[in-house]
């Protein structure tokens, strides 16, 4: 393909990324390093600060909210369980919104919308958790993660202190993110990488692989050229980025296992319908 076409594709995907994803890496890094004019994020580091920070988190979408038990007379452990579940539900609401954002981004990839509709569904079903996992990386550092559009910083130690299996949910993402962030990709690189992930021709059940592989090939060329231009001093960056796709699949497999455990162990758990659709029969 012509270099000009590849550059134009990179520009198009970057613009779509900026349009569809509200918290960019540039903004997240500014918040994490304190280089922003906005207020510093509210820090959640224990149960007390979680309760205080709850008002910042959008947690009104799930019917479970209306079913909170009366707190009077409940023991501290019971209260803690409720807070953890409420937090989990608000995470689910945000994840469902994020799936919608990723869908809009996918639709903006040239050629995606003319693929067989069933294949579009399959690409999203298998790609979206990988995409969301990779998009967490810019929000994280070794000590914690931004949540709620960057308004809150939740510490890694606090997430590790939650009861099992909640406590197992985020640690692999921190381990992945700390390594991934060392590649120092920016938002324009991320936009192309996300498109490459979405256009994976080896997802189970695809009906027509060839056009998907052709689209991915083109985006891969664009990513390779873009990384060479954008990071002229970073040797083998293209290969290093592609290697991360293997780690991502392991990350998703682990995530699905934790959700399975949660479904078995938490009677109060109600999984968001959109996330249920994605998780059903996945791996």
């Amino acid at each position: 393909p012509e270099a000009a076409d590849l550059r134009s594709l990179a520009k198009h995907l970057y613009e779509s990324y900026l349009k569809n994803f509200p918290l960019t890496k540039a903004k997240a890094r500014a918040i994490l390093s304190g280089k922003t004019n906005d207020n510093a994020p509210f820090v959640i580091h224990d149960m007390k600060s979680l309760l205080e920070g709850e008002q910042f988190i959008n947690c009104c979408h799930l019917p479970h909210q209306g079913q909170q038990r009366e707190s009077t007379g409940a023991t501290l452990t019971e209260l803690q369980r409720e807070v953890e579940l409420r937090f989990f539900h608000s995470c689910q609401s945000r994840s469902a919104e994020a799936v919608s954002e990723v869908t809009e981004f996918a639709k903006s990839i040239p050629g995606f919308s003319i693929l067989d509709l069933n294949d579009q569904v399959t690409l999203l079903k298998y790609g979206v958790i990988e995409v969301l996992s990779i998009m967490m990386a810019p929000l994280m550092n070794k000590d914690g993660t931004l949540i709620s559009y960057g308004q809150i910083f939740m510490t890694r130690e606090f997430l590790k202190s939650l009861r099992k299996p909640f406590s197992d949910m985020m640690e692999p993402k921190f381990e992945f993110s700390v390594k991934f962030n060392m590649l120092e990709l920016d938002d324009s690189d991320m936009a192309l990488f996300l498109a490459v992930i979405i256009l994976s021709g080896d997802r189970p059940g695809l009906l027509n692989v060839k056009p998907i592989e052709e689209l991915q090939e083109n985006v891969l060329h664009s990513l390779e050229l873009h990384l060479k231009t954008n990071h002229p001093d970073s040797l083998h960056l293209f290969a290093k980025v592609l290697q991360k796709m293997t780690d991502l699949r392991q990350l998703v497999t682990h995530h699905v296992q934790v959700i399975q455990l949660l479904k078995e162990s938490e009677v109060d758990l109600c999984l968001h319908p959109l996330l249920q659709e994605i998780m059903r029969d996945l791996y």
Binding site: A96, S100, E101, T103, L117, V121, L274, E277, I278, R280
Partner: peptide, 20 residues
Amino acid sequence: KEKHKILHRLLQNSTSPVDL
């Protein structure tokens, strides 16, 4: 199709506001 009706809906709607 029934199994993934929300994903279908998200894909077929031209803009993002979908009742999630």
